[in-house]
Structure formats: structure tokens, C-alpha cells
């Protein structure tokens, strides 16, 4: 039983930065902007959060600073793409590479130093739980409430579906896009801070969160841009990673890297399964069989109509 609880807590902890970053990206993409800089931004934020925490001695100040760093990277992306009309994809790609190098260059002085962390908030009977778990759970509810039950959430989704239609209804398209991308970047930055201050403590090369940003981008697609499914996807990936650690003990004969790499192909397989509903044969089957139809329609999702498309007010 203890083993079971420990595994669940492990999954919750490993999943929380993934939840934060993928929800952030979901917000940004629902408003129509792909933030490809996610991976680099998370790494840079992880470094910035750790560095500030080390300097000031306050892990929470560092955590917040990580968020601000993520927002700053997103801010650069959004200004260049929304206002200066450059391609979101190209800028995002370059930013992710730039931020990665910048993180290792600027963070050199802080590498392999012991530093503060966010500690644990215990629940009696369960044990210590990292504060980032609480933060990510609160974030889930906030994002869901905001996206589907507030005026601004409705506007944000509208902007991602059709900026033309939103504009002609008096919505300030660019302002909403900017706010959404900044919020998304802030959450990705918190995810970076969560890694260096809680989940994979400390800074060094390579930091444990390298590659997590790319996984988050995939999780958003896997989750069909819907917050709860995105959350489920994040925990699923975390579960695969945690399972890998346990399986390693069970099968000592297999080389270690197999278990580290296994989550990635399994993720691809899951993506494939989740999108089965788009195949013609499955469509036909669904038309005949109501049970299959229910499953397929639950899994199917399409991207926001205007995702990645620029918007120009004048026509």
C-alpha cells in the first residue's frame, strides 16, 4: 500500500511541471499562437529560478522569477510574430535553441551547486508533497474555469477559431493573443522553476527538464487542445516515466536506457490510437457501432481553426 501511494505521489510530482507547461501552451494555442520556444524557455527559466533562489536564498522568489523569465521569452515571440509579422514557427524554433544555449552559458556559474528548494507540504497520512503539485492542481481548475466560464476565455477561444469574425464583433484580437501567450509563457516558466527547485533539484548540464518542452507540445495535440485531456496526457507521460524507474528494478537484465527511452515511443503509439477516429475504416465502423462511435467521438479533436495564422485588421 505504501508502495502504491509512493508511486501515485511520484507520478503527481513528475507530472506537475508537465501539467503547468502544457496548460500554458494550451492557452496560447487556443488563442491561435503556437509557442514553439517552450523547451528552451523552460530550460532558461529553470536556470533563472535556481540562480535567483541561490542568490537571494528564497526558493519562492526564484520560482516566481522562473515564471517571469518564461513570460519574457513568450513576450519576445509574440511581439515579433503578432506585431512585426514574422513567422511564429521560425521565431519559436530559433528562440528555443537560443534560450537553451543562453541557459547553459549564463548558468555556468551556478552549475552543480547545492541550493534551496521548495521543500514539502505534508498531508497527514500521505507524507510530504511538493508545493508545485498544489500549484499545478490549482492551475488546472483556474484554466478550466477561465476558458469555459468567463467572458475573456470565450473571447480567447473565439480569436483562435476565427480572428476575422472576432474582430468584426468588436474583440481586440491582438491584445487577447498577447495576453494569452504571456500567460502561457509564465506557466511554462513556472514549470521550469518547478524542475530546478523541486522535481530535479539544482542546475547542471544536462538539466533534467531538457526535452520536456517538446513533450508538452505533443501533449497539447494529444489532448486535443482541451484542458482536462491535456492534464490526463501530462500525467500519463509522467506515469510512463515513473513506471520506467520501477520496471528497471524488476528487470535488471535489460539495459537502463531502454526504460528511459520507452516513454517516447509509447507516447507516439498513444497519439496514433487517439487519432484512430480519423481513419476512414474506423469512421465506417463507428457509423455502424454506437459503442465505437462513443469512444471515437470522445477522442477526436480538431485544432483551433486559426492556429498559427496571422491576423491583419485591415481588409
Amino acid at each position: 500500500m505504501d508502495m502504491f501511494i509512493a508511486t501515485i505521489l511520484g507520478i503527481l510530482a513528475a507530472g506537475s511541471p508537465l501539467v503547468l507547461a502544457s496548460l500554458g501552451e494550451t492557452i496560447s494555442e487556443r488563442a491561435g499562437v503556437v509557442n514553439l520556444s517552450l523547451d528552451g524557455a523552460m530550460l532558461l527559466s529553470a536556470m533563472a529560478a535556481f540562480a535567483l533562489a541561490l542568490t537571494t536564498g528564497s526558493a519562492w522568489l526564484g520560482f516566481l522569477f522562473g515564471g517571469l523569465t518564461g513570460a519574457a521569452v513568450a513576450g519576445f515571440l509574440v511581439v515579433v510574430s503578432v506585431y512585426l509579422g514574422c513567422s511564429q514557427m521560425a521565431i519559436g524554433f530559433i528562440l528555443t535553441l537560443l534560450c537553451r544555449d543562453l541557459a547553459y552559458f549564463l548558468g555556468n556559474d551556478y552549475a552543480r551547486l547545492p541550493g534551496p528548494d521548495l521543500g514539502y507540504w505534508s498531508i497527514p497520512g500521505l507524507g510530504g508533497i511538493s508545493p508545485v503539485v498544489y500549484v499545478s492542481v490549482i492551475a488546472m481548475f483556474l484554466v478550466w474555469r477561465w476558458m469555459f466560464f468567463t467572458r475573456s476565455g470565450l473571447r480567447a477561444r473565439a480569436v483562435g477559431e476565427s480572428p476575422q469574425a472576432a474582430f468584426s464583433r468588436g474583440v481586440k484580437v491582438n491584445r487577447i493573443r498577447i495576453l494569452c501567450v504571456l500567460t502561457g509563457g509564465f506557466m511554462a516558466g513556472l514549470a521550469g522553476g518547478a524542475y530546478s527547485l523541486a522535481i530535479k533539484n539544482g542546475w547542471g548540464r544536462p538539466q533534467g527538464c531538457e526535452g520536456a518542452g517538446w513533450i508538452c507540445l505533443a501533449i497539447v495535440i494529444f489532448g486535443g487542445w482541451s484542458p482536462w485531456k491535456v492534464v490526463a496526457g501530462a500525467y500519463f507521460f509522467a506515469a510512463l516515466q515513473v513506471a520506467g524507474i520501477h520496471l528497471q528494478d524488476l528487470f535488471p537484465g535489460l539495459p537502463g536506457p531502454v526504460f528511459q527511452v520507452a516513454p517516447f515511443p509509447i507516447m507516439i503509439l498513444t497519439l496514433l490510437l487517439a487519432n484512430l477516429g480519423r481513419m476512414r475504416r474506423v469512421k465506417d465502423l463507428a457509423a455502424r457501432n454506437p459503442f465505437v462511435k462513443k469512444i471515437v467521438s470522445g477522442l477526436n479533436a480538431s485544432a483551433p481553426e486559426a492556429l498559427g495564422k496571422d491576423f491583419n485588421e485591415d481588409m
Binding site: A158, E161, A165, S168, R169, G170, S302, E305
Partner: peptide
């Protein structure tokens, strides 16, 4: 819209993926 001029576009300028009430509420 604030002064009271509204236009029904030739091709409906709306949000097909969203619900009827959401389309109605927005704008």
C-alpha cells in the same frame, strides 16, 4: 456596434467549432 451599426456578412462570419450560445453571446 456601439453606435448601432451591424452587418450580416455574406459568408457567415462566425465560429463553427463553438456552441450556439457562445456564438450568440460573443458580440
Amino acid at each position: 456596434l456601439a453606435v448601432g451599426v451591424g452587418m450580416l456578412q455574406q459568408d457567415p462570419l462566425d465560429f463553427p467549432a463553438m456552441k450556439v450560445w457562445e456564438n450568440f453571446s460573443l458580440g
